[in-house]
């Protein structure tokens, strides 16, 4: 595989520079939500967890739509493709750039959530629920990113993003039906049950498979059009 690494690095840096301020704003909003969570009161917990989900979902949608959909719509992609990059270079730079621009706020907020849970009176068992919740958003993000790289239609992309992200609600409800997950999250100890571990493993595996398949699919293309 012959990659133009210096240009890929520059394109990733370009995406980071383009979106760093907005992503910092998402992180700040997420830290506000975590502050509410940390108050460990019922009203603050519900408000904070809702705000946290909204912020992480919004950051995911922002990263995808600005680096791919808006670039396509505003015709800046043509400028990038005119640079000395192959379709594979471009795909790798877009995937890694996206993983960086979304990954940084995602990791900051995931770690922040775990720290808040472990350092406040909230039951430590919530770590399992929070991890599965972030796992779902990561999976939804990976699927939306793959669709955005494959499909030019704005309508389908919006459907993929909104559709996969709003599934977080049924997902949480489904988790509530699994006793081996529901029980431990109320306890002050972190006890990963087999179903919880399997769900997390499946989320991570499918996310990786979707992203690798996207890179492989685009890497086979000889040209952009």
């Amino acid at each position: 595989m012959n990659l133009n690494r210096p240009v890929i690095r520059l394109l990733i840096l370009k995406d980071w520079q383009l979106f760093e301020k907005q992503l910092a704003a998402y992180v700040l909003a997420g830290l506000g939500a975590l502050t509410l969570l940390g108050l460990a009161r019922p009203w603050a917990f519900y408000l904070g967890s809702l705000a946290l989900i909204v912020v992480v979902v919004a950051a995911a949608c922002f990263a995808i739509s600005n680096s791919l959909l808006v670039e396509r719509k505003e015709q800046t992609l043509a400028f990038v493709m005119s640079l000395p990059v192959s379709p594979l270079d471009f795909t790798i730079s877009k995937l890694l750039g996206n993983l960086l621009t979304f990954g940084v706020p995602f990791c900051v907020l995931l770690l922040g959530t775990l720290v808040v849970i472990l350092s406040t009176p909230l039951p430590d068992g919530l770590v399992i629920l929070a991890t599965l919740l972030f796992g779902h958003i990561l999976l939804a993000y990976s699927v939306s990113l793959a669709v955005a790289m494959q499909v030019e239609s704005e309508g389908w992309n919006t459907f993929a993003m909104i559709g996969s992200m709003v599934l977080v609600n049924p997902f949480l409800m489904a988790l509530g039906q699994i006793e081996s997950i529901q029980g431990p999250i109320r306890q002050d100890a972190i006890a990963w049950s087999l179903p919880a571990a399997l769900i997390l493993g499946a989320q991570l595996l499918v996310s990786v498979v979707v992203l690798v398949h996207t890179a492989w699919w685009h890497g086979r293309k000889a040209a952009f059009y």
Partner: peptide
């Protein structure tokens, strides 16, 4: 298109539908 990376190093391409980053 096989050697497009090498070729594009020596090509300057501008098209009417190409835009730069507004921000």
């Amino acid at each position: 298109p096989e050697a497009q990376v090498a070729a594009k190093r020596d090509i300057g391409f501008a098209s009417e539908d190409m835009r730069l980053y507004r921000g």
